[in-house]
């Protein structure tokens, strides 16, 4: 039982990171019908920005995070300008390819600018963690879980309770109708890119003390986050969160109780099962409903 609880805690911690990145995926799918394969690299860039602010410039940790998140939002707009805007009338595929290209570009530009040496970032708290009964709770995993919960609540409030949120939702549901109602669709899409980049960057900053900051860290997370997105339901917000958590728990449990070397296989086996048995995912809409 002790082992089970320990695995559950770690699985949820890792799952929360998948969920945050998956959330970034979902927002862009809904707002701009774009699958952004640079989402993982947003996390990597975010983590490096934190390294620059905290390790290099020596600013306080929370201020560094705040600055990095703001910079990431701006970076999201730039990213949209480069990958999405010029190709927005050409359908989904060219944009997807251009985000793949941008992701490769980002990894290599960071490699050139910052070098290949992995960086170490301390956690939000000095203490390594707390022992609760048989479970050791790593302080960074706790920070991740708390931050993810707060972000989900914040996102709910923005989308459901504010006018901006309603406009964003309207844009994601039907761009033509939204623009007829006087909603600045282009602006809404740019805001979504900015939010999605900030979210991805924050996920990277939160996971950095656990995984270290390296150029390849984004790819590692993004693939699982994308799988989480399919499992939860393509384009579904609660689906992305639950899918991410489920994936994190499933691979940790699978690794421990069945086989460690097949850990990654569990995540993708789960993805395959969903694609075969329930392709719309946990919360996905049936395609016919969207017509």
């Amino acid at each position: 039982m002790a082992i089970f609880l320990q695995l559950l805690f770690t699985g949820l911690g890792i799952g929360a990171i998948y969920a945050l990145v998956a959330l970034g995926f979902v927002l862009l799918i809904r707002a701009a019908s774009v699958v952004n394969f640079g989402q993982g690299q947003f996390s990597m860039v975010g983590a490096y920005l934190l390294v620059v602010c905290f390790n290099v410039l020596g600013l306080p940790y929370l201020l560094s995070m705040l600055i990095a998140v703001i910079l990431m939002a701006g970076f999201g707009v730039l990213f949209a300008g480069a990958t999405y805007w010029p190709l927005r009338h050409r359908g989904g595929l060219p944009v997807i390819i251009s985000t793949i290209g941008a992701s490769i570009f980002l990894e290599n530009i960071v490699l050139v600018l910052y070098g290949p040496s992995p960086e170490v970032l301390p956690g939000l708290f000095d203490s390594p963690g707390i022992q609760v009964g048989p479970v050791f709770m790593d302080s960074q995993y706790l920070s991740i879980l708390v931050s993810a919960t707060l972000l989900v609540i914040l996102q709910y409030v923005i989308f459901e309770k504010t006018l901006l949120g309603k406009k964003l939702q309207a844009t994601s549901q039907d761009k033509e109708m939204a623009s007829l109602l006087g909603i600045p669709v282009a602006m809404m899409i740019l805001i979504t890119f900015a939010y999605s980049a900030a979210l991805g960057g924050l996920a990277g900053m939160l996971v950095a003390p656990v995984l270290f900051v390296s150029v390849g860290m984004g790819g590692l997370i993004a693939l699982k986050a994308f799988a989480a997105n399919i499992i939860g339901g393509y384009g579904s917000i609660p689906g992305a969160i639950l899918g991410g958590l489920a994936l994190g728990v499933a691979e940790t449990m699978g690794a421990s109780y069945i086989s460690v070397p097949y850990k990654d296989a569990f995540a993708f086996f789960m993805l395959l099962m969903f694609l075969m048995v329930r392709p719309q995912g946990l919360f996905g809409e049936k395609i016919s409903e969207k017509a």
Partner: peptide, 15 residues
């Protein structure tokens, strides 16, 4: 055994 480039080693450590 474990496969390279893991995000978490809890299962290995618990073993």
């Amino acid at each position: 055994g474990y496969t390279n480039q893991q995000t978490d080693f809890t299962p290995v450590v618990l073993a």
